[in-house]
Amino acid sequence: MSSRIKFFQEAIKNIKTLGTVTPSSRFLSKRMLKEIDFAKAEVIVELGGGNGAITKYILKNLSPKSTLVCFEINDNFYNQLQTLEHPQLIVLKASAANIILELQKLNFTKVDYIISSLPLTIIPDEVSDEILKKSFKILINNGTFIQYQYSLTYFKKLKNVFKESISLDFEPLNIPPAFIYRCKKVE
Score class of each variant (00 low, 15 high):
S3W: 15
I5Q: 08
A11C: 05
I12V: 13
L18Y: 06
T20I: 10
V21P: 00
P23G: 02
S25V: 09
S25I: 07
R26V: 12
R26Y: 14
F27R: 09
L28D: 07
M32W: 09
K34E: 15
K34P: 01
K34A: 07
F38L: 01
K40R: 12
V45H: 04
N51K: 06
I54E: 05
T55W: 15
T55I: 04
K56Q: 13
Y57F: 15
N61E: 12
P64E: 14
L68F: 09
V69P: 00
I73E: 13
Q80N: 12
Q82A: 04
T83R: 13
Q88V: 03
Q88P: 03
S95F: 05
I100V: 13
I100Q: 10
E102P: 01
L103F: 04
F108D: 02
D112M: 08
Y113I: 04
S117R: 11
L118S: 03
T121H: 05
I122F: 08
D125H: 15
D125V: 15
D129N: 14
D129S: 14
E130N: 13
L132A: 03
K134L: 03
F136I: 00
F136A: 01
K137F: 15
I138C: 04
I140L: 12
N142W: 14
G143R: 11
I146F: 11
Q147D: 09
Y148F: 13
L152N: 06
T153S: 14
T153R: 15
Y154F: 14
K156L: 14
V161Q: 06
E164S: 13
S167N: 05
S167V: 11
E171T: 14
L173Y: 13
F179L: 06
K185V: 01
